[in-house]
């Protein structure tokens, strides 16, 4: 289990999370839902070790075992689709980059640069790069922004089939309902 105990995060005067405690299962796909500004992304960033809370702590997660998909794609305009994956893949990875591209339905685009991709394709590349890190826990911030609903459902099913714990922020109700569990903030 992943434990969040009495978490408080503030950005200057603005309180993003105040004394939040919850338990997240370390299996299946968990959707974090809630209105905009309720602290979903902040919670995910704390879980990913990208943000240090002013108070509280996270248990059940080791440093370096999470792969974080940022809300923005953060692609490198000068690297091809294939290079984005090989850049982050572990040195002795047994999974070829093509496998991750197939998972996000981006095969055949290996040589393309991000400027040649549509918004949805760029989002899927960012997701593939996150998967290519091959880390134990996936933290995905709005992974299906710009991806058409049917394709998003197929990719979500493949994420479930990976068997890794996934915690994702979802704004689309139908996608949240397809997850193993929904947690409202």
């Amino acid at each position: 289990m992943i434990g969040v105990e009495h978490l408080t995060v503030t950005y200057g005067e603005k309180v993003a999370l105040e004394d939040v405690s919850l338990t997240l299962p370390r299996s299946g796909v968990t959707a974090l839902v809630g209105p905009s500004g309720c602290g979903k992304t902040t919670l995910l960033r704390v879980l990913g070790g990208l943000l240090t809370p002013q108070q509280g702590r996270v248990t059940g997660l080791e440093p370096g075992e999470t792969a974080f998909l940022f809300q923005e794609n953060r692609l490198l305009p000068w690297r091809t689709v294939a290079q984005h994956l090989t850049d982050v893949a572990p040195r002795h990875s047994a999974t070829p980059p093509r496998a991750w591209l197939e998972l996000v339905e981006l095969e055949g685009e290996e040589g393309a640069y991000p400027s040649a991709l549509s918004g949805g394709m760029a989002r899927r590349l960012a997701l593939a790069r996150c998967l290519a890190l091959e880390r134990e826990v996936l933290l995905l911030d709005e992974p299906f922004t710009g991806v058409d609903p049917q394709r998003a459902q197929r990719i979500l099913q493949r994420l479930k089939d990976l068997g890794k714990p996934v915690i994702l922020v979802a704004h689309e109700p139908h996608l949240a309902q397809s997850c193993d569990r929904v947690m409202e903030l």
Binding site: G48, L50, F70, R74, V88
Partner: peptide, 9 residues
């Protein structure tokens, strides 16, 4: 943001 991505990855 790219530098943060590099650290996270």
């Amino acid at each position: 943001q790219l530098l943060e991505m590099a650290r996270a990855y």
